[in-house]
């Protein structure tokens, strides 16, 4: 099924400070896009805005999911429509088990009640796939999790909820190679004609495991370069400064 997520001329500010300054990006199902950029370029702002974080104020532009205005939807509605954000720093919720949370989330997104037994089987299957220990399901959500455990948990949620589009906000940061492989396995498992992903990253490393179709480079709130996989290799070699210089020259500074 051909789903389309379109970001058009998006301007976003936080506490009156402009962060995104006219960002355009179109993501289609079946595609994996990498969004790369230096710290402070607005990558996390973009991911939070797409999911509807209340502190991010959209001042101009639109985000359309299959033609529908996403910006008017509360975060839970966006989730039900098929958007998923893998958080860089997922919140801890004391006293709520991973299993209880996942079941509530899955039932909410599907809009139907899955029996406890069916849910348990499904969850176990996904956990096995991500090489997670069974005891994980009984732990309290993200409480005392290592960085790697948090990211696996995010991937587990994505595999269960099966979104139309996954946005991964620096999911690779702070991961060792083994955890990185598992996370990549999660994304690659969903890779199909029905799924698209925006992999936001600072480094090229994760792109060795998740091969992007398109690579964007974001500088100061805008996408300044778009290319194929070779662009990420170039960035790895040369860093971001050469693009920054080009941009500044073009903007006449």
């Amino acid at each position: 099924m051909g789903n389309v997520l379109e970001i058009r001329d998006l301007h976003v500010q936080i506490d009156d400070k402009p962060i995104l300054k006219g960002l355009n990006l179109t993501l289609k199902s079946g595609e994996i896009h990498a969004l790369m950029g230096p710290n402070g370029s607005g990558k996390t702002t973009l991911s939070f805005t797409l999911m509807g974080h209340p502190r991010y104020e959209v001042t101009k532009g639109e985000v359309l999911l299959n033609g529908e205005n996403v910006l008017e939807m509360a975060p839970d509605e966006r989730a039900r429509r098929g958007l998923f954000l893998a958080f860089q720093y997922p919140s801890e919720v004391a006293g709520v088990t991973v299993a209880n949370f996942l079941r509530t989330a899955l039932n909410s997104v599907r809009g139907t009640e899955l029996s406890a037994w069916d849910f348990f089987e499904l969850m176990q299957q996904k956990m096995n796939f991500l090489e997670m220990d069974e005891s994980f399901a009984k732990r309290y959500l993200n409480e005392g999790f290592s960085g790697g455990e948090k990211k696996r948990n995010e991937m587990l949620q994505m595999l269960l909820l099966q979104p139309k589009f996954g946005i991964l906000d620096e999911t690779d940061s702070g991961l060792d190679i083994d955890a990185l492989k598992v996370v990549s396995k999660g994304v690659n498992a969903l890779r199909s004609e029905d799924f698209g992903a925006l992999v936001i990253t600072h480094y090229n490393r994760i792109l060795r495991y998740i091969e992007p179709d398109v690579v964007h480079v974001m500088i100061d709130g805008r996408i300044e370069r778009t290319g194929g996989k070779e662009l990420s290799l170039e960035l790895e070699e040369k860093g971001y400064d050469w693009i920054k210089e080009d941009v500044e020259a073009a903007r006449g500074r």
């Binding site: 999911m51 509807g52 974080h53 209340p54 509360a74 975060p75 839970d76 966006r78 989730a79 039900r80 998923f84 954000l85 958080f87 997922p90 919140s91 919720v93 949370f101 509530t104 989330a105 909410s108 997104v109 949620q157 909820l161």
Partner: peptide, 8 residues
Amino acid sequence: FYLMSRGL
């Protein structure tokens, strides 16, 4: 926000 982003 985290919980709502999961459909709650």
